[in-house]
Amino acid sequence: MIIKENKGLKILLVEDNPGDQVLVSDYLYAEFSKLNLDIASNFKEAKTHLTNNKQTYKIILLDLSLPDIDQSNLIKEIVVCAPNTPVIILTGQDDIHTAIQALTLGCTDYLLKNEISSKGLRKSITYAFERKHIDKQLELSVKRYQQLFQLNPQPICVINSSTGEFLEVNNAALKKYGFTKNEFLKMRIHHIDLNYAKEKFNQHISEEEILKNENLHEHILKTGKKIKVKLYGNEIDYQGIEATLLMALDMSETQSYISQIEFQNQQLKDIAWEQSHLVRAPLTRMMAIINRLEKKHFEDMNEVDNECSYLLKNVLSSAHEIDSVIRSIVDKTSNRNK
């Protein structure tokens, strides 16, 4: 990984020994041509730099032995002051327990002063940037999946694959089932699904079976109401636990929507049929009257009134056109409901 921060790389060196300050500074300037280095001789100065400096430090090089704070609290305080900045420990103590503690508290590396070289220091800083980059990507990934989990409109839960205990639920599940999150986390899947079995949740169910509400899971809401659901699941690792991610689709709602649509379609069909007959009856009479008037016109008059004949023909043509439109509407309504 190329350190882009090399252009104006800003580092804070926290070191009380003047000789070590010079040595580490020389190593840094030898490796980084555009270096912005600040030096603090104690924790108070370091805290001032971290809290007052407008430009964020990219790296903190920290000596564990400072005159104004004990070692056990030093790392914690530095991490509090600069939670997003990689910290590399510089120490003369070859103590494995101290090293483990430092790394546990969030430090990225632990270097012994008598073994430091310019190349080794550069390598440690490069590693710190790589680790920070990976940590940021993981953090963004976790946030992204948490958002997808919580904002999904369908009820989703994570259960322990062995015990059936709820490990996590999303907001849609809380709303659908009526339980609080604390209540869910004290329950098992069998409290809402009496017949739940891990091997059943991913079985294939045909559309016909769904419409008939067959082979679906029956879930019990907090109110005692029972709903039919289709479960989709995947095996996942959840914080080191073998778990199952389950999504529940409420087929009771789907069945209700289908019934409503079928009812509305039947109503439209009935309305179209009734209206077509109501409109066609007077239209048929009008067409018969026009035919009679046209016939009478030619029988009673020696000379044809061209204007009257033209008007009668147009009225009759319009009547036939309206009749065709009515028939088309009835045919379309009938085909839609087949």
Rank of each mutant, 00 (worst) to 15 (best):
A46W: 09
I134D: 06
G178L: 08
S65P: 08
I271L: 14
E303M: 12
L35D: 00
T51V: 14
D237W: 09
M287K: 11
V169E: 06
K4P: 09
Q264L: 15
H49G: 02
T108D: 10
E242G: 07
T163G: 00
G240H: 05
E294F: 14
E253Q: 10
Q154F: 14
S41D: 00
Q137R: 09
F179H: 00
K222Q: 09
E139I: 07
L28G: 01
A243G: 06
K212M: 13
A319F: 08
I88K: 07
V330C: 08
I75K: 03
N152P: 09
S118T: 03
D331F: 14
S276R: 05
K225R: 08
Q255R: 10
K7L: 12
F43W: 01
C107N: 03
N36Y: 11
K226Q: 11
I289W: 09
E5S: 06
N202Q: 05
Y232H: 09
K226P: 07
R131W: 13
G92L: 11
E31R: 00
I116H: 03
L66R: 04
V315N: 06
Q275C: 10
I60R: 00
T108M: 11
K230T: 11
S141D: 08
N152W: 13
A128T: 00
I78P: 04
Q154S: 12
V315C: 11
I189Y: 04
V14G: 03
Y310A: 10
E31L: 00
P67G: 00
T98F: 15
Q101V: 11
G120H: 07
I3W: 04
K113V: 07
L103H: 05
V330P: 07
N36R: 05
V229L: 06
A128Q: 00
E208H: 07
